[in-house]
């Protein structure tokens, strides 16, 4: 074994090995990591194939070992779990866990924005467009509808607004254009 800094792949694999039952990990954890390291160092082995084999491992040996750990290894002697059923179980777990995981990460990184959205400052989250004709940055604000501009189709009402593209100025909130 070479004593060099661990690559990212090795660290990730080390974490995955940590998910196996303790008894199995104690017996084979080091050997699994060493075999993974050997695979990474093999020039004939594409990295994508190594990770595919790791995913296959997770969908079969991982569950087998946990089940064997729970039942004291008795299930192995009695019946063999169909690989298809294990893969379906793995897919269900992954599909179920993904929104939870991404939601948690999204909340963690985006919580400051979530708080700002609740504040009554409408100009905090503007989308800006570059007007290539005038080389000016433009933004959209909701402005009161001018009944004359839309040929009397809608009666003018301060409650009705429509998006209007207006120039964006640094430091100042965007303003609706005044009627000529």
């Amino acid at each position: 074994m070479t004593h060099r800094p661990l690559r990212l792949g090795e660290r990730i694999y080390g974490l995955l090995v940590g998910l196996y039952p303790k008894r199995f990990r104690d017996q084979f954890g080091w050997s699994m990591k060493q075999t993974f390291r050997d695979l990474l160092g093999d020039p004939e082995m594409p990295t994508s194939r190594i990770w595919l084999s790791v995913l296959r491992d997770l969908s079969s040996s991982f569950f087998h070992e946990h089940l064997a750990n729970l039942t004291g290894g008795r299930h192995m002697a009695r019946f063999r779990l169909p690989a298809g059923a294990l893969r379906v179980a793995m897919a269900v777990v992954l599909i179920g866990a993904t929104p939870l995981a991404t939601g948690a990460v999204g909340y963690y990184f985006g919580r400051s924005q979530v708080q700002l959205v609740a504040e009554p400052t409408s100009h905090n989250f503007q989308t800006f467009f570059l007007d290539t004709g005038s080389s000016r940055w433009m933004t959209v604000v909701n402005c009161p509808v001018d009944a004359a501009a839309i040929a009397g189709a809608v009666a003018s009402s301060p409650g009705i607004t429509a998006p209007v593209l207006v120039p964006a100025t640094a430091g100042n909130p965007p303003r609706c254009p005044t009627a000529p």
Binding site: Y20, F24, F28, S31, M32, K33, Q34, T35, F36, D38, L39, S53, V54, R56, D57, L58, S60, S61, F62, H64, E65
Partner: peptide, 24 residues
């Protein structure tokens, strides 16, 4: 690792073991 390589080469790729499956 030697076992893993032997199995893959001699099964002509029909049996591919990852580290987890190998040690299980």
């Amino acid at each position: 690792y030697e076992i893993l390589k032997y199995v893959e080469a001699n099964s002509e790729g029909r049996v591919r073991l990852g580290p987890g499956t190998l040690y299980t």
